[in-house]
């Protein structure tokens, strides 16, 4: 890997997104709109459902959006021939993957800051722990989404297939992350599966942050999420082939 090339990739991806105003607007505004929708749904109802669901969704939106955006963008790079050209140049696989992860990580940071500021500042989401840590967890989730998106794009030949990986890889994680049924109440087998899915840890971290000022568990969960993201990037590098048929 070479920092000059890695940053060249990241800079180029950011320029491409800056050019695409609609995508940029969606990336930044969509999570805020969805959080507002959630708040509106539960605002007049008794109980504090928004406080219970909000943190999980703050973890989920950046994860899902970055997964989709990354898998489609990378696939486009494969089909347009630009990836082949880059791999015939002095470009390491790590440069390519980390460059993408940096660019989308930067966008995820802005996206998550906006969503967290809106949720905590305007929509009154109660957070006991430090708000900045909530943002850090959201960014880690987005990077995880990016890393998984990079990984699955290796197995998709078309954009249609890439989009189908979302129900395959993302929806089970949403179902089992503790949002619908608390993780400790899941049947044993599903509990075990839930324990090996990264989004479960992301949602745990968020929930802990909203209910207690104790951050020890949060750092543990965060480490798991980051570990999964790094593993997905490593797998992505392993599946990125310089020579193709």
């Amino acid at each position: 890997m070479n920092p000059r090339i890695t940053f060249a990739v990241a800079g180029r991806v950011l320029t491409q997104i800056r050019r695409d105003h609609r995508t940029l607007a969606m990336l930044l505004v969509l999570p805020c709109l969805l959080m507002s929708l959630l708040w509106w749904m539960f605002d007049d109802l008794p109980g504090n459902t928004f406080d219970r669901l909000g943190p999980a969704l703050l973890a989920m939106f950046p994860f899902i959006i970055m997964f989709l955006v990354t898998s489609v963008t990378t696939l486009r790079e494969r089909t347009s021939g630009t990836l082949e050209r880059l791999l015939s140049m002095p470009m390491g696989k790590g440069d390519f993957l980390v460059g993408y992860a940096l660019a989308f990580g930067a966008i995820a940071t802005v996206q998550s800051i906006l969503a967290v500021v809106l949720s905590v500042g305007l929509l009154g989401l109660d957070v006991e722990g430090p708000v900045w840590l909530l943002t850090v967890v959201a960014v880690a989730d987005a990077v995880l989404g990016t890393a998984l998106g990079l990984f699955v794009s290796a197995f998709a030949q078309t954009e249609f297939q890439a989009v189908q990986f979302m129900p395959l890889l993302v929806i089970p994680q949403i179902l089992l992350c503790g949002l619908f049924v608390a993780r400790e109440l899941l049947p044993d087998v599903l509990g075990v599966i839930s324990d090996v899915l990264p989004l479960s840890y992301a949602v745990d971290a968020m929930s802990t942050l909203t209910t207690t000022t104790e951050t020890g568990d949060v750092w543990g969960d965060l480490a798991v999420v980051v570990g999964f993201a790094l593993a997905a990037l490593a797998l992505g590098a392993a599946t990125l082939r310089r020579r193709t048929t």
């Binding site: 000059r4 090339i5 800079g11 180029r12 491409q16 050019r19 695409d20 347009s80 021939g81 470009m91």
Partner: peptide, 21 residues
Amino acid sequence: AASVYDDLSVRENLRFFAKVL
């Protein structure tokens, strides 16, 4: 196929590939 980025200008494309090289 023209393997350049459709959403970048000619100059931006070349600047990127120049950095890679």
